[in-house]
């Protein structure tokens, strides 16, 4: 019951925060001078009509209520004004979302097992050369920015060795996205994204597992006759997973927003590229939607981590007095 209340409270607070941020965002965007529409025939009229419907020229708060109503009731975020002129913003967003999710899912599929394995290995070999080697590499891999990997991978694997394409293969339908060629063309991007995540998981797993391995119940487990591997797998790993698992979930949500630069480097037609484009072209409708998306992702990642801590290990009460 406590948990349920806690979750409700967290979600409520999150929604409130989200609402406040979006209000601020909206007001700040509306305070900017209105950008003229790039005109192509009929599109201009459509956009003009849409703008009138959205209450351009009225007080900002009134515009905000109109905006809220259209978003909440109709799911309508307006039309593209500077890019994808005349198309529904939400439709373009939906088109772009699969690529972003795909890259991140692949990257997680790669980095979770690898990171966990390295972490477990390092923890088991604590203070031996293997551990030092892994820890040092982790330090390096965590620190180096992902676009440096992207550059190295592009130069070495794509150009020098010619193993992969420079950019992602074009995709039209969902089956295109899941095809083997798409996967192959995504490998450089996946690798660039994964190095840092793998290192992060390794570090975290090692830290958690070493802590568990030195705790008293491990001694008890050995005393009652379990072998070292039995004790490690049955007791240590399970307990270490308690904090690791929420972190994986949080990472997955968080990585969605972290892939922005990688998407732009490898020309992945994802949400990140759309965002950068909308900023550079000053298309505020796209900007509002994508800002909402990224804000939501960020808040959701936090809350998911906190809640899952509590669910997985009821001893932990995040935010409790």
């Amino acid at each position: 019951m406590y948990m349920f209340k806690y979750i409700l409270k967290r979600i409520g607070l999150m929604l409130l925060t989200f609402f406040v941020i979006m209000t601020m965002c909206f007001v700040l965007v509306k305070l900017l001078p209105v950008v003229d529409v790039k005109v192509f025939g009929q599109d201009a009229n459509i956009i003009k009509m849409r703008r009138e419907a959205l209450g351009y020229g009225k007080p900002i708060m009134e515009q905000y209520f109109i905006f809220l109503k259209s978003v909440i009731v109709h799911g309508n975020w307006g039309v593209g004004e500077q890019m994808y002129t005349g198309s529904e913003v939400i439709d373009i967003f939906r088109q772009k979302l699969p690529a972003t999710i795909l890259v991140n899912v692949y990257s997680m599929i790669l980095s979770v097992p690898v990171g966990l394995l390295f972490g477990i290995y390092a923890a088991l070999k604590k203070n031996k050369w293997q551990d030092h080697f892994i820890s040092t590499s982790v330090m390096i891999f965590v620190s180096v920015p992902s676009y440096v990997y992207a550059f190295l991978i592009q130069y070495l694997l794509c150009f020098k060795l010619g193993w992969f394409d420079f950019i992602m293969a074009p995709c039209e339908t969902l089956s295109d996205y899941l095809s083997w060629t798409t996967f192959l063309s995504l490998i450089p991007a996946i690798l660039s994204l994964s190095f840092g995540t793998i290192a992060g998981f390794t570090r975290y797993t090692r830290a958690e597992l070493t802590e568990v391995l030195t705790s008293d119940f491990m001694l008890l487990a050995r005393t009652k006759g379990l072998t070292k591997s039995q004790a490690t797998v049955r007791h240590a790993l399970r307990n270490a997973m308690v904090p690791i698992f929420p972190m994986i979930i949080g990472q997955f949500v968080g990585i969605l927003s972290g892939s922005l630069i990688i998407e732009s480097i490898f020309s992945i037609p994802g949400v990140g590229g759309l965002y950068v484009q909308s900023i550079n072209l000053k298309d505020y409708n796209f900007f509002m939607l994508l800002s909402a998306f990224y804000t939501f992702i960020g808040l959701a990642a936090n809350i998911i981590v906190d809640i899952s801590y509590g669910i997985i290990d009821p001893r932990i009460r995040m935010g409790a007095r």
Binding site: L13, T17, V20, I21, L28, F287, Y294
Partner: peptide, 19 residues
């Protein structure tokens, strides 16, 4: 701080840039 911390950095930069 919750609210400020919830705003993605990219949005902050963009809004400052535009304003």
């Amino acid at each position: 701080t919750d609210i400020l911390g919830g705003v993605p950095f990219m949005i902050v930069v963009t809004l400052f840039k535009l304003h």
